[in-house]
Simulated assay, not measured.
Amino acid sequence: MTDTHPELDDLVLPFAVEPLEARGRVTRLGRLVDRILERHAYPGPVSRLVGEMVVLAVLLGTSLKFQGRFQLQTRTDGAVDMLVVDFEAPDKVRAYARYDGDRLAELGSDATPEALLGRGHLALTIDQGAEMSRYQGIVALEGQSIEDAAHQYFQQSEQIPTRVRLAVGETVNGARHAWRAGGILVQFLPSSPDRLRQADLHPGDAPEGTAPHAVAEDDAWVEARSLVETVEDHELIDPTLTSETLLYRLFHERGVRVFEPQPVVERCRCSRERIVGMLRQFSDEERHSMVGDDGRIGITCEFCSTHYHVEPEEIGVDE
């Protein structure tokens, strides 16, 4: 029987390929992503989409060098019209999706992420707290995958050559099927800024016949990007293949250095205190309308499905 490595799941492993001046992170998510998807019992296509977003949020969120929140959120006209993944630095993740069951059924069980999302936008938000300005990047979703949207963001907003691979799938774990997910991100970070030059974005309204601006890609980046592009989905979710082994397969000819792995956990930010504080912000009329037939207010967290009962007097609602 092939050995699995559950102790190496739910970790992010930073790495550097110094001869190619490339850095990145690789992650394999086991119980973390399975708990999120199992709790919500999403249909298969929705689970895969949520899993991809969780992996991307983990790869990006673990790069934060401060205490704060990183959020990925989509708003689209597709069958899955909202996806939200919160990453609270340094290690906490939560996620949920909103979808139309009838439209999802029309698309079928083999619906692609592109078909599920439709058109809209992907927002990437960094919140460092009340005393700091929030940063938000927006990427238009026009039928592309989550991977492609991430590449578009880095090209437009960060202007750092970046390649991302994401994978989600089910594996047999004893008597039940379990979800797994994985991803790898590599970026070109040369010491010379001249080597970071990229082609200008298409101007859109340029006169007909205008030649697009072109810049040849750096050879080192072409090599790093091309190697990551060879990664197959099964390699990213295989419980018998460690992150270190995958990186060695990719970069052994150049040499790859790994750093201290960063654990990540599935953890919601909700609490009774937060719920009561949120309810107190509504108007008197709105708070009165929330009281149910049992004389209490019921609130269910969309992220973790925890149900809270709040007594009316706790939020200033009189008899």
Rank of each mutant, 00 (worst) to 15 (best):
R195K: 14
T171Y: 11
I184N: 02
L201T: 09
D218Y: 08
H202F: 12
F188N: 06
V164N: 00
P203H: 01
A149I: 02
I160E: 13
Q152K: 14
Q156H: 15
R197T: 15
D148S: 14
Q144N: 05
A178R: 13
E158T: 09
P207Q: 01
Q156T: 15
A206M: 04
A216Q: 14
A216M: 13
H202C: 14
D219R: 14
P212L: 05
Q159C: 10
T210Y: 03
R165E: 08
I160A: 10
H177S: 15
I146L: 12
Q152F: 04
R176S: 08
P207E: 00
D200F: 15
D218G: 06
P203R: 05
E158S: 13
V222N: 09
E208T: 08
F154M: 13
P161V: 06
R197G: 08
P161Y: 05
D205F: 09
R163G: 10
Q155K: 14
D205C: 03
L141N: 01
H151I: 07
A175Q: 15
G209F: 03
V186A: 08
R176K: 13
D205R: 05
W179L: 02
T210W: 04
E208W: 10
G183H: 04
I146F: 09
A216Y: 12
S145G: 05
L201N: 07
V139Q: 04
A178S: 07
L185P: 01
R163K: 13
N173H: 13
Q198H: 08
P193L: 08
G169N: 05
Q152T: 15
E208I: 09
A211L: 10
V222C: 00
A206T: 04
L201R: 07
D219M: 09
Q198K: 11
A214N: 10
R197E: 15
H177V: 14
G204L: 01
A175I: 12
D200N: 14
W221M: 00
W179V: 06
D219G: 08
R180C: 07
F188G: 03
F188K: 09
L189I: 14
H151K: 11
H202K: 12
V168Y: 02
R197F: 08
A140K: 04
Q159K: 13
E158G: 11
Q155G: 10
Q198T: 12
S157C: 12
L185R: 07
A167W: 02
G169Y: 06
E158R: 12
